[in-house]
């Protein structure tokens, strides 16, 4: 009887509220430990002025992770978010090893719609909790780090703030993921900086960073910050806690 699998060994998973994600089939993972990495990028209409730089940033951020000494222990998921998508997010790819990812193939964002920030955080963290639990149950050690990059505040989500708070709270108990770092990065957010700061605090995210304007230089800095933070969080795996080396600013 033929085995039914997705072509690249990925498996579909369901979260609450009709959210879904995909991830590498665990039986195909050979290492003892993994850091789950999620990068969620705002694709609402307001990023149209800098979508080229946004894509370049994403390619650089994920591509740079390949140089990390922990590159074999990273499973990366990339999302775009906009309320044009069902559930507010579209998965560019689910959790998969870096070796199977070609950032050059990432599609150009197609800006439009509003900003479902709760959906983005809920999908990012919820998927890490769910997949992290499966990894834990099968003897793998795992931690996580999520980056949500946005230029605007929440205004269109299906997921509610209590849903987001519950997932974030679950992620830091140490019972599923050894540790979890969630970072909200604001770009071009002069008008909503305070709003995003409040959002991250209310949700229980690890930190909010206001990166500044949406220039190519700023976005290049974000890319470096993401890859450095991923490497650092992965190197902390096994210590029992999150990385203490992640910078507070970009």
């Amino acid at each position: 009887m033929p085995r039914i699998t997705t072509p690249d060994g990925m498996k579909d998973h369901k979260l609450g509220g009709n959210f879904t994600f995909t991830a590498k089939r665990i039986e195909h993972l050979g290492a003892t430990e993994y850091t789950l990495v999620t990068v969620a990028v705002d694709e609402s209409g307001s990023v149209s002025g800098f979508m080229d730089q946004l894509l370049a940033m994403l390619k650089e951020a994920v591509g740079s992770c390949k140089a990390s000494p922990r590159s074999d222990n990273l499973l990366v998921r990339v999302l775009y978010f906009s309320d044009r998508y069902r559930g507010g997010v579209t998965e560019i790819h689910g959790f998969k090893p870096l070796a199977e990812i070609d950032p050059a193939q990432y599609p150009m964002p197609n800006p439009g719609g509003w900003t479902p920030l709760c959906d983005a955080v809920y999908s990012a963290v919820g998927a890490m909790n769910k997949y992290g639990k499966e990894l834990y149950d099968r003897d793998y050690l795992a931690n996580g780090i999520a980056f949500v990059i946005t230029d605007g505040g929440e205004n269109a989500s299906v997921a509610t703030m209590p849903m987001v708070k519950a997932e974030l709270a679950k992620s830091v108990t140490g019972e599923i993921l050894e540790s979890m770092v969630s970072i909200l990065i604001g770009v071009n957010t002069a008008s909503c900086k305070d709003h995003l700061d409040r959002f991250s605090k209310e949700a229980g995210m690890t930190q909010f960073i206001d990166a500044g304007d949406a220039s190519a230089k700023t976005l290049a800095k974000i890319a470096k910050f993401v890859s450095r933070s991923v490497s650092s969080q992965s190197q902390s795996l096994g210590t029992g806690g999150p990385s203490k080396q992640i910078a507070a600013t970009i």
Binding site: E27, H28, L29, G30, A31, T32, D137, R138, L141
Partner: peptide, 16 residues
Amino acid sequence: DFKTTEGAFMKRRLSR
């Protein structure tokens, strides 16, 4: 009592 058998499965089992 292996949960998965890819790669370092003995190491994972012993560590856990």
